[in-house]
Amino acid sequence: MTVKEIVETLNLKIVSGQESLDMEVTSGYTSDLLSDVIANSKEGNLWITRQTHQNIVAVAKLKDLAGIIIVNSREPDEDTLRKAEEEKVSILCSEEMAFEVSGRLYALIR
């Protein structure tokens, strides 16, 4: 399943990285600890988090993640958006909380 299909099904708002929406999503990873995500996420994962600062972009880029879903109606910081556009990292926003987004994503791709 691609990022784009997940965006449509989970009703996510695309805020950056339009050009990366065709990436195949392998699974999801839910965490707000950057060291945890760097260590344990896998290529193609969609990262579910409440973090909005610019350092999330480098983590997604380094681990070849399929994108980042920011939960709880939070919006990425301006410099996060700028970096994400530069690095072509998809950032998607959800009004739901991490538990709900994770559950729905799990049901979709398992």
Binding site: D32, L33, L34, S35, D36, I38, A39, T49, Q51, N55
Partner: peptide, 12 residues
Amino acid sequence: EMGFGAGMGLPN
């Protein structure tokens, strides 16, 4: 608060 400082750096 930014998600750093979990004491995982050097162990990782």
